[in-house]
């Protein structure tokens, strides 16, 4: 593969995934679908960061005799933290979905709005 194209390819696919998640989030009325979209968006940001931390010919950042070049460990630490924070927000969002389903009997945004309008 053309090296110039390959240099940008991981970033572009990460952005494509980001936009797929974004579109799911704003275009679908189903609450669970929206949570899935949010998670796709989130994972694409992880891919972008890990991609930026990669060093050509480097090893995983674990000390090993005879290896001098390691990938950058800082993005890894940052993304480990955000994976865990991400699952916390997902759990809270899904808890809200269950609660909304209980109160309105639906997880479709338009039906919930219609019930609200009826009072």
């Amino acid at each position: 593969m053309d090296p110039i194209l390959f240099e940008r390819y991981p970033y572009w696919i990460a952005i494509l995934l980001m936009m797929i998640g974004f579109y799911t989030l704003i275009s679908r009325g189903n609450l669970i679908k929206q949570v899935v979209g949010l998670n796709i968006f989130q994972t694409s940001v992880f891919i972008l960061y890990i991609g930026l931390g990669n060093v050509e010919g480097g090893a995983a950042p674990i000390l090993r005799a005879g290896t001098d070049v390691y990938s950058n460990p800082l993005p890894h630490v940052l993304i480990l933290t955000s994976i865990v924070v991400g699952i916390a927000t997902t759990a809270l969002a899904l808890g809200l979905v269950v609660r909304i389903r209980e109160a309105y009997g639906s997880i479709e945004e338009d039906e919930i709005r219609a019930k609200d309008a009826d009072g």
Binding site: N39, F46, N54, G58, S71, H76, I79, L80, G86, I87
Partner: peptide
């Protein structure tokens, strides 16, 4: 992530993203 030299991130994502998040969504 594993191919991109980030094994710690890879196993956290496999356990938390593919495991717990999927279980939570199925429960919902």
């Amino acid at each position: 992530f594993l191919v991109m030299d980030a094994p710690d991130v890879a196993f956290t994502e496999a356990a938390v993203g593919a495991g717990i998040a999927t279980v939570l969504m199925l429960t919902t």
